[in-house]
Design a protein around this nucleic acid. Sequence first.
RNA 1: GCGCCCGUAGCUCAACAGGAUAGAGCAUUGGAUUUCUAAUCCAAAUGUUGGGGGUUCGAGUCCCUCCGGGCGCGCCA
Length: 633
Amino acid sequence: MEYIKRKIETIVSEYVKKEFGEDYPVRFLNPPKISMGDLTLSSAFEIGKKLRKNPREIAEKFKSVLEKLEEVEKIEIAGPGYINFFFKKEKYLEEIEKVLNYKRDTEAEEKIIVEHTNINPNKAAHIGHIRNAVLGDTLVRMLRATGKKVEVQNYIDDTGVQVADVVYGVLYIDRKSIDELKKIDKIDYYLWDLYVKVYEKDDEESKQKRREVHHKIERGENPEKEYAEFISTEVLKRHLQTTARLGIDYDVLPRESDIISLKFWESAFELMKEKGVIYFQTEGDNKGCWVMKVFEDGEEREKVIVKSNGAITYVGKDISYHLWKFGLFEKDFYYKKLDNRHYITTSSEKDADKNVSFGKGDRVYNVIDQRQSYLQNIVKKALKKMGFEKQSENLIHFSYEVVALSKKSAKEMGFNTDTDKSFVEVSGRRGVGVKADDLIDELEKRALKEVKERHPEFSSEKSESIAKMISSSALRYYMIKYTLNSMIVFDFEEALKFEGETGPYLQYSNVRMKSLFRKFEEEFGKKPEDEINPPYSFDSFEPKEREELWEAIIIGSRFDNELDTAIKNLEPSRLAKYGFYLCQKLNFIYNNFPVIKEKNQERRKITLFTLHFLYKQLNKVLDILGIEKPEAM
RNA sequence: GCGCCCGUAGCUCAACAGGAUAGAGCAUUGGAUUUCUAAUCCAAAUGUUGGGGGUUCGAGUCCCUCCGGGCGCGCCA
């Protein structure tokens, strides 16, 4: 119904300017009940507030102006001043293509970079990482659905202490050669356990040894460097297999080791000195460091960017990475193919693919959990201080709460639940967490059992393929249905559900429709689309039935509004909820209005229209949520 | 100590930018199919939105205060 809103907007802003001599934003609301109207305009409140007039009186003035709209059947002023529109139903149905093919105004060409997943390549991916990846991927799909150009980056911290710690473990605890590592089936699982072992013996001597390993990797000394490269690449490949199970891909994988060897930092350092953003501290706690002044909590504080031993801090690296993301210095990576879906950065020119280019974004979304807010803000401030105001503003921390384990689930897995808190924190170092692949395996197992029970006639290949789609949708929906601010206290019982507000429910609704349309074709010898033609008439329905069908159509018409709101508020859960709501309406109509058995052609046409329209809208939602659409389930 | 976030039905969560009678799922109880996939649908029941005060036509939402919980504030990454 966005096309009608645009029409109303034009009329309202013209009228308001003439009548009240000022511009007011035109805002729409959804009436809480369809009996109150199809759409609400709230302008009377805003104008009334400003002019200190009764909003109801102002609303009355709008009535005559807006009633002239050809789409409008009637207008009612309700409550304290809501302007409620009732559309001409038959006309609305005739123009449904305008709803289905709504095109947003094309904004100036803008390149968006979304960074997400960013799992340290030293152990298996766990449910916390999955929330990040699913949120990031959904954000990407949301943006692309509105026609935006989006590049997806997955940053690989292959030189950090985490990798060094497992290299230490391999070299000094398990004493394995690279050839031996190659024989391990799931290296990420092996390292999950090894990582825990490394921290079990956390004495001074091993700490010292670990630091040494880290420094050697940073300086490029072998065999440490070789091990680090091997491990991080192999674990990365495993992570990509895991995310691929959820339908998640990336355009480019920038590696920290390349940032270091291509000396990004040196350029960033020069730039920061030149712009006077950092300076050398000669006294106090930070003596010998390069620091940046940060204004926070009403006082100037210092943030160390280069340590007194000359090493760069984490923020320092992040600042240079972001200068690259926005294309703010001349430095660039080389790229090569990692597999047929992903490019990875490289520092050597000779194996580089010269035909691709990444970065140089206008807007950047970083999908990182809420604990990193402080540091993300430092990067933003650094950009601003360097004079890159616009880029600083366009750097958006897509922040969300973490995933923890419910005490019940943690106990079931044999973790220590002796804590004051009502949940158990996920910790890679202690090996506390649910591995993503384990969870997906379990979901697949359960889905397969269901499919086999329902369809014993299916080949095992077919059943398995369907089970995979179901498990992926269940996990994706579970991760997306919570608002970003809400901590997910992971519970097996909740996550393994296929009924109620779950991904499979949405999938199932879709399958039902497909099946219905298939049967319709068999029965009537034509496609549903061929039946759905004007003229339309609701005359053969009871008033109650008419309202039920019409409500479903109005709900279905809100897709574009929901998508826009989800993007504006950066809240993917909104779209998940909408998808669920859509399916509830769809299933209700399906259960209460027969199609194939319906003898009255007028009734059949309208019912089919409604279901087909909701089905098409649902398909858009499923694509954005990354939920696959099996033929049967 | 300072900053950010949260507190809503028995449980897990919604509530669009301050809007109309605070809604879903799960669990509970009862019901629907000789009929398009029952992973469905319908109905019943459950609320002082942590407490108190304020702002206004209107507050779960904004402000103040108190209580309870989470996270952050490194020359770690």
